[in-house]
C-alpha cells in the first residue's frame, strides 16, 4: 500500500468515527449519572433534520448546528420529564423516543429530501497538515472534528479531576447516598441527560451538514445503537470510547477500500465488518470483569425517588 492511501484511510477514519464519538461521549455522561437513554437514534435524526432545514432556510451553518443541538436537548428533556419526573421505565421510554424521533424527523423532512446545501468546509491548518501520514488526519478536518477533539479532552479531564465530574459519578453510583450528603441528584441527572441530547443532536447535524450534506430519511443508519454498545464495551471510560469510535471508522473505511481493490466478497458481508470488528475488539477489552466494575455506574437505569 502506498503512503497516499494510508493517509487517506486515516483521514476518512477520523471523519467517519467523529459522529459516533460525539454520540457516545454524550451517552457516556448520561449513563455515568445513572440514566440509560436508548433514544439516541431519535435524537440524532431530529438533530439532523432540524439542522438541515435551518441551514437550508437561513444559509447559516452556525444556526444549523445550534438548532440541531437544541432539537437534541428538547428531545432529551422530553425523555427526562417522563423518566426522572414521572419515574417511568427508562428502557421503554428510550425505545419510544427512538421510534418517535425516527417518525417525526421523516415527517418534518419529507419536503427536504434530496435538496442540496453547501456543507461544512475543511479547515486546513498550515504547516501541521503537511506532516506525512498523520498531518491530513489531524489537521485538515472540519470544525466539528476539531470540536470533538476538544470535547474528548474536556471530558477526560472532567471525569478525572473535576469536582462536578465526581458528583456525576457519585449520583450514578448511589443516588440515595448522594442525596443523603446533600448532592443535587435530580438536577445532575437532568443536566447529564440534556448534555447527552445536545451531543446526539450535534452528531445528527454533523451527518446532515458536513458528513453527507443532505437530508435522507433514517440517515443515522444505526449509529445511535452502535454508540450505546460502544459505551458499555468501553466500560464507561473516555479513552476507550475514543478508541472504539475510531475503530468503527477504520473498519467502515476498510470495507470501501476492499471493495475498491476488487475483493470478491459479498458487499453485504463487508458492510457488516465495522459492527463486528468494533464489538469484537471491545468485548475482548471488557472481558476483565473486575476492572470494568470500577467504572460502571452501579445505579444505571434504576429510578430514584427523593426520600419519603
Amino acid at each position: 500500500m502506498d503512503m497516499d492511501l494510508i493517509t487517506n484511510i486515516l483521514y476518512a477514519m477520523i471523519r467517519t468515527g467523529t459522529p459516533l464519538l460525539i454520540i457516545a461521549l454524550g451517552e457516556m455522561v448520561c449513563e455515568k449519572s445513572g440514566v440509560l437513554n436508548l433514544g439516541q437514534e431519535g435524537m440524532i435524526l431530529m438533530g439532523a433534520v432540524a439542522g438541515f432545514i435551518v441551514t437550508l432556510l437561513t444559509g447559516s451553518l452556525f444556526f444549523g448546528f445550534l438548532m440541531a443541538m437544541a432539537a437534541g436537548v428538547i428531545m432529551s428533556q422530553l425523555f427526562a420529564m417522563i423518566t426522572l419526573g414521572l419515574n417511568a421505565n427508562q428502557v421503554a421510554t428510550g425505545l419510544a423516543l427512538t421510534i418517535f424521533g425516527t417518525g417525526l424527523s421523516a415527517f418534518i423532512g419529507a419536503d427536504f429530501v434530496g435538496q442540496p446545501i453547501q456543507g461544512l468546509d475543511v479547515i486546513v491548518i498550515p504547516l501541521l497538515s503537511d506532516i506525512p501520514v498523520i498531518g491530513k488526519m489531524l489537521f485538515a478536518q472540519d470544525a466539528i472534528v476539531y470540536l470533538s477533539f476538544g470535547l474528548f479532552t474536556a471530558l477526560y479531564w472532567f471525569f478525572r479531576s473535576s469536582r462536578t465530574g465526581l458528583i456525576v459519578k457519585a449520583v450514578g453510583e448511589n443516588p440515595h447516598a448522594a442525596n443523603a450528603i446533600g448532592l443535587p441528584v435530580m438536577r445532575t441527572r437532568y443536566l447529564a441527560v440534556a448534555f447527552g441530547g445536545a451531543m446526539a443532536g450535534l452528531a445528527g447535524g454533523y451527518l446532515s451538514l458536513a458528513y453527507t450534506p443532505m437530508w435522507a430519511e433514517n440517515m443515522s443508519a444505526g449509529r445511535g445503537w452502535i454508540a450505546l454498545a460502544l459505551v458499555v464495551f468501553a466500560s464507561w471510560r473516555t479513552e476507550r470510547v475514543l478508541l472504539g469510535a475510531y475503530l468503527f471508522g477504520l473498519a467502515s473505511i476498510l470495507h470501501l477500500v476492499a471493495q475498491g481493490l476488487g475483493f470478491s466478497v459479498s458487499p453485504n458481508l463487508l458492510a457488516m465488518l465495522p459492527y463486528v470488528a468494533t464489538v469484537l475488539v471491545l468485548v475482548m477489552m471488557s472481558r476483565n470483569q473486575s476492572r470494568s466494575k470500577m467504572f460502571a455506574p452501579m445505579s444505571l437505569g434504576k429510578p430514584f425517588h427523593v426520600g419519603s
Binding site: K169, A170, E173, N174, H176, A177, A178, A180, M294, F295
Partner: peptide, 8 residues
Amino acid sequence: HFSLFETL
C-alpha cells in the same frame, strides 16, 4: 447503611 461511594 453507609452513604459512601465504593468506586471513589
